[in-house]
Design a protein around this nucleic acid. Structure first.
Lengths: 151, 151
DNA sequence: ATAGGTGCAAAGCATTTGCCGCGGT
DNA sequence: ACCGCGGCAAATGCTTTGCACCTAT
C-alpha cells in the first residue's frame, strides 16, 4: 500500500522505484530522528537489496524536495525527520541522545522581530535545548540506555 | 606580550608552547568566527612553523578547557570563537555566510522553563537565525548585494 | 629528567561520486 | 527506447592519530 511519504513524493514529481518506496515506507513509520545508518538498517530489514549509497542519495533528494528535514544534533552524523511533523524545536537529552520535540508558538515571531531589528529578513531558525533529566522524583530506575559519548 | 587568551590558558593550567602562544594570540585578536583552516592561515602568518594538526589539537584542547566555543553554522567545517565574548546567539547571513551576534536576555530563562516543563534541567542551548539582508532599503544608497560566499 | 607537545603522513568517518549495467515510465 | 536509478568501490573533505623527535617545566 502507498505510504504517506510515497504519496508526497508522487505529488512532487519524484520518480518512484522499489528502493525509494521502501525508504518512503520506513520514513512514514518513523517517529524519531534516525541517521542514515539507522535508516539503512530499517530499510534493509524490509528489502535487503538496498545499498547505503542509495539511502544517502534518497535522503538528499527528499530533503531537496522538502519532504525531509536534516538536523545536526551535535553528534557526528546528520539525522532526519519527515517535514510533515509541523514546526517544532528539539530538546536533546545529553545523556541518552534522545530527542524530544516541543513547540513554542510565539518564539518564531519574536525572532522575526529580532532579525528585523538587525536589518535582516528571517528565513529560518534553529533552536535546540540540551539538557538532562531532572532527578527530582526518583522512581523505578529503568536501566539507562548505553550510548557512546558522542566524541 | 602575553595575550588575553594566553593568560586564560595559564590560569587553567595549560602548558604553553610557542605554537600555542601564537594560536592564543590569533584568537585574542579574533573578532569573527573562523574555521580551523582560517586560524591556520592566520597563525602561519605570525609563525610559519605550525602545522594544521597542531591547530586542530589546540583548538580541541582550548574547547575542552572552556576557552573556545565550537559552532557549526550549517557549513561543512566547524567554526570557533573565544568564549569570553559572553552569552549571545548568532544570526547568519545566508547569502554571505557572515555572522552577526545578538543577545536576548530573557530568552534563556524562557527556555529554562520550557525544558523544566518537559522534565529536563537545561544545560545549554543553541539559537541561530538564518536570514538575508532586508532589501526594503529606505532611499538612495542601497547596499549592493555582497557576493563573497564565505566568512 | 620526563611527561607531554609537534610535524608529517597515514588513517578514520561520514558522505559523495564515477562507472556502468539495469529498471521505470 | 530513454533517461534516470542503484550498486559498488573509489574518491572526498574534514578531522584525528601513530610514530619519532623535541621542549617546557
Amino acid at each position: 500500500m502507498e505510504s504517506r511519504i510515497e504519496r508526497l513524493c508522487v505529488e512532487r514529481g519524484v520518480k518512484m522505484t522499489g528502493q525509494r518506496r521502501v525508504i518512503a515506507r520506513v520514513l512514514s513509520d518513523t517517529e524519531d530522528h534516525p541517521d542514515v545508518e539507522e535508516l539503512y538498517r530499517r530499510a534493509t530489514r524490509l528489502d535487503s537489496h538496498i545499498s547505503i549509497a542509495t539511502v544517502y542519495r534518497t535522503v538528499r533528494l527528499f530533503e531537496e524536495k522538502g519532504i525531509l528535514e536534516r538536523h545536526d544534533f551535535g553528534g557526528t552524523r546528520a539525522r532526519y525527520e519527515p517535514s510533515e511533523h509541523g514546526h517544532h524545536h528539539h530538546l536533546i537529552d545529553i545523556e541518552t541522545g534522545k530527542v524530544i520535540e516541543f513547540q513554542d508558538a510565539e518564539h518564531e515571531d519574536l525572532m522575526r522581530v529580532v532579525a528585523s531589528r538587525l536589518g535582516f529578513e528571517l528565513v529560518s531558525l534553529r533552536l535546540e535545548l540540551f539538557g538532562r533529566k531532572q532527578k527530582s522524583a526518583p522512581r523505578g530506575r529503568a536501566a539507562p540506555p548505553a550510548r557512546k559519548p558522542s566524541k
